[in-house]
């Protein structure tokens, strides 16, 4: 298996996130989940590694609370009633429809969750920048994105240092009251804003001192990421899926059922 192009990975996440919202049939959502997992494995994302296994199991279990909401707190009439009772004013009704709706929401959450893993584990900040450069996004835009990532990383480091420095002067973050905590965080952010202003100024000076112009006809690109046939195939497939999903949602039909009808 080879790695997918950064643009393909970004397209997978954004297009499929939209498709998840369009699909309302449980079987469609199951098929989509399988597709996401296959694409994840194709993009060499360690979805089932030890690092993610615990989180996946946690999400699979905690998301089951959706069933409790739809079966015990949102009475929905259905063709088959499995259980019905009243406790005072509380109407508990478990029907085939409530289970179906709960399953739809459950699968949407799980699909979204796998796409999130895809995004965070599969698309690095570097992927994003190189992907954008490979489709000729202007250098200024990619430089700003890169500086933003650097800025965020610096901000995180500085935040942790300033927070520690405050702790060494007797500031309690964990045990303090909420108003006190807010006040402490405001103090940190004032220091951080001053520090980040200085750093941004220095970064700008560093870029200028190296003679890096924002617009240059001579600029070359070191990294070369050709979009391969497989990437084209996946991106075209994703767009077909997207348009087809929009069409099906407009005529209120299921992807799987339509497929079964056709064959």
């Amino acid at each position: 298996m080879t790695k997918l192009h950064p643009i393909t990975k970004i397209s997978i996440v954004f297009i499929l996130s939209f498709v998840v919202l369009l699909f309302s049939n449980v079987f469609d959502l199951i098929c989509l989940l399988i597709l996401i997992i296959i694409l994840g494995l194709l993009a060499k994302i360690p979805i089932f590694s030890r690092k993610f296994r615990k989180i996946i199991i946690g999400i699979l279990i905690s998301s089951l609370s959706i069933y409790i909401v739809w079966c015990f707190f949102t009475p929905v009439e259905g063709d088959i009633i499995f259980f019905e009772t009243w406790v005072g004013n509380w109407h508990i009704l478990i029907s085939d429809q409530s289970i179906y709706i709960a399953s739809r929401y459950y699968l949407r959450i799980i699909n979204m969750f796998f796409l999130m893993i895809f995004f965070f584990a599969g698309i690095s900040d570097r992927d994003l920048i190189h992907g954008l450069r490979s489709i000729k996004v202007p250098f200024t835009v990619t430089l700003i994105i890169s500086m933003t990532f650097r800025g965020l990383s610096m901000f995180q480091q500085e935040y942790s240092i300033v927070r520690e420095a405050m702790m060494t002067r007797g500031v309690e973050f964990e045990r303090a009251s909420i108003p006190k905590r807010i006040k402490n965080f405001i103090s940190i952010f004032i220091v951080l804003i001053v520090l980040m202003f200085k750093k941004t100024e220095d970064m700008a000076a560093s870029i200028e001192s190296r003679g890096i112009p924002l617009r240059s006809k001579n600029r070359t690109t070191y990294h070369y990421f050709p979009i391969k046939k497989k990437d084209y195939a996946i991106i075209i497939g994703l767009f077909i899926l997207l348009f087809f999903s929009i069409y099906l949602s407009l005529i209120n039909k299921s992807f799987v059922f339509l497929f079964l009808e056709l064959f």
Partner: peptide
């Protein structure tokens, strides 16, 4: 300050 001279995401970049 080397921190502010590091603009890109990796050493190579």
């Amino acid at each position: 300050d080397p921190e502010t001279q590091f603009i890109m995401i990796t050493v190579e970049d």
